[in-house]
């Protein structure tokens, strides 16, 4: 390199120009973030204010708020929004209910040499195709002939069939690893000295869990809930396969994006808004600062 001969013995161009070094480091990720991520979001918002030709479905670039009015004044759409929100919250709560004890067991009860194996086992389902897993649940939940129906038959019960409940169960299964892994990482970070101190001060197991462990792992539970909540909010394939006639937000977008792209865009801003509100709420708890 020609410049090195003329430069001081220590460091090169980047060393003497920290800003240039930073720019070089961040150019690619920033271009990605701005162009692809924010660019597509901007395009989404922009499209939401247009309309389509009623016949050919071609875009008509005239400003209108009609799409948003439609979204927020049609009872059927409001109902779908609430239903989706309910499903996302239920999935998140179920993931917490199942995920936290599992993560606790992995990090604090299981022998240390088993831990890597347990983590691998939790990760295994993530390697299988999403579609295969959802179709597997279709076979599990199918009324009369499904695996669940077969197990419940001796009790005089049948499978819940395809509907909200089956969507919740399937999504919980799909996103559970995203809850377990951060919470597990949180549990492993709890210092033994704190537990000892708690015990020395006379706290029993439950009290230690509530007053020492939970505050420490809370941010990781929040991190997990961001995954499970936002992934559930945007999902539409699960509803298509195991939802029966129940649909979610994403299905409305999917139904409309070819025939009425602006309406679909207006509808697609709702989950974005909900997730932003959720993030803002999470931020108020301070959980994000500790991540």
């Amino acid at each position: 390199m020609a410049t090195t001969t003329a430069s001081p013995p220590k460091g090169g161009f980047g060393y003497r120009h920290p800003r240039a070094r930073l720019a070089a480091l961040l150019a690619a990720p920033m271009a990605w973030l701005v162009v692809v991520y924010l660019g597509s979001l901007a395009a989404l918002f922009l499209t939401a204010f247009w309309t389509v030709d009623g016949f050919t479905g071609a875009l008509v670039r005239t400003f209108t708020l009609e799409n948003f009015v439609d979204v927020f004044t049609t009872p059927a759409y409001l109902q779908t929004m609430l239903r989706t929100l309910g499903i996302a919250i239920s999935v998140t709560l179920l993931c917490l209910l199942i995920g936290v004890p599992v993560a606790f067991f992995m990090a604090r009860v299981a022998r240390p040499r088993w831990q890597p194996l347990l983590v691998a086992l939790i990760l295994t389902p993530l390697w299988a195709s999403y579609l295969v897993k959802v179709y597997a649940w279709r076979a599990m939940l199918s009324p009369e002939q499904g695996v669940l129906a077969w197990f419940l038959a001796p009790l005089g019960l049948d499978s819940p069939g395809f509907g909200e409940l089956s969507i919740i169960v399937t999504l919980t299964y799909l996103w559970l690893p995203y809850m377990i892994l951060p919470v597990y990482a949180g549990f492993t970070r709890v210092p033994n000295s704190m537990l000892d101190a708690s015990a020395d001060l006379g706290a029993k197991g439950w009290r230690t869990f509530r007053s020492v462990i939970v505050p420490i792992i809370f941010p990781t539970m929040v991190a997990g809930s961001i995954f499970t909540f936002s992934l559930s909010l945007g999902d539409y394939i699960t509803a298509q396969i195991v939802g029966g006639k129940v649909i979610m937000l994403g299905n409305v977008v999917q139904q409309n994006y070819v025939t009425n792209l602006p309406f679909a865009a207006a509808f697609a801003t709702i989950p974005v808004i909900i997730v932003l509100l959720y993030l803002a709420a999470v931020r108020r708890t301070g959980a994000l600062d500790n991540l």
Binding site: A58, V60, T62, F63
Partner: peptide, 19 residues
Amino acid sequence: GGAAALVLAACGGGSDSGS
């Protein structure tokens, strides 16, 4: 970004009313 989109949308009004 959202605000920029709004401005763009407002400016884009009136062009090409569909074929």
